[in-house]
């Protein structure tokens, strides 16, 4: 599983404060802590409170690049923020994200190609959040077709079926899981899959338990990547164990430690 740490997000008060006070140390600490706990890449989002994301995004990127060369996942709904972020990147990048809307795809696919970036495509459009599996598959197919037309390598595309809070759309949870498997058969070579895990439990009491249970199930559906909180040790342990049970790693008594030594 390719793990994208979610904690550098201005939605969190500590990061919002670090951004507004230009506290490099706080951001770098958050980056290194996530990497030490198993993140393969770091999501970067200036958050809703950022007054000028065109300046804050490059600052965050430069700050993080001082301490790591791991891939960075540029998270913004504004293409211009992504563009200015890409310009500041030395590390490998993932664009987070495009919707299935032509006007976004038209900007973000060429950007991804230009910067040799991977691209997250969310099965959502301006018409709103899909209500069932077929709508999700349709939107995913639209993104894949558009990538193929623009000669963007589909194996660098990460499709997100868009996880919904379990109290908001309980009936859709199974659809979302099945999409993870079915997105992979939409094209050859297959696209990758990703979910923003915390969505599943947003605002819920047992969020950590729900997250790790959902992730365990998603692993069985073949999920390639997740944006999650790597500091949640129980979540990471569940992930490692799920992959072990699916024979992705060889068992030994210290398999949790062994995974972390990889």
């Amino acid at each position: 599983m390719f793990i994208i740490g979610e904690l550098i997000n201005g939605m969190y008060p500590n990061i919002a404060l670090a951004i507004s006070s230009r506290d490099k140390k706080a951001v770098q600490h958050c980056a290194l802590e996530q990497l030490a706990c198993g993140a393969d890449a770091l999501d970067i989002n200036c958050g809703p409170g950022s007054k000028d994301p065109l300046i804050d995004m490059p600052w965050l990127i430069e700050t993080i690049q001082e301490v790591t060369d791991k891939p960075l996942c540029l998270d913004s709904s504004k293409p211009q923020v992504i563009k200015d972020g890409l310009k500041a990147c030395k590390n490998k990048t993932i664009i987070n994200s495009t919707t299935a809307d032509r006007e976004k795809l038209d900007i973000l696919i060429p950007l991804a190609k230009q910067y040799k970036s991977k691209l997250i495509g969310i099965a959502i459009s301006k018409k709103g959040i899909p209500q069932n599996k077929d709508q999700r598959l349709e939107l995913a197919a639209l993104i894949i077709t558009y990538c193929a037309e623009k000669k963007f390598p589909v194996e660098d595309l990460y499709l997100d079926p868009i996880a919904m809070p379990i109290n908001v759309a309980q009936a859709q949870a199974r659809d979302i899981l099945e999409c993870i498997r079915e997105f992979k058969i939409l094209s050859e070579p297959a696209p990758k899959t990703v979910i923003g895990l915390s969505n599943v439990s947003q605002g819920l009491h047992a969020h950590s338990l729900i997250n790790r249970t959902f992730l365990t199930m998603a692993v069985d559906y073949g999920l390639d990547s997740a944006i999650l909180n790597p500091l949640d040790k129980k979540l990471m342990d569940s992930l490692i164990t799920a992959e072990l049970i699916l024979n992705k790693n060889i068992y030994c008594d210290s398999y949790l430690e062994a995974y972390r030594k990889k």
């Binding site: 030994c252 210290s254 430690e257 062994a258």
Partner: peptide
């Protein structure tokens, strides 16, 4: 035994 092989390597490391 592959499981013991892996475990022993970890113990040694």
């Amino acid at each position: 035994d592959i499981n013991i092989a892996k475990q022993l390597n970890i113990l040694i490391s």
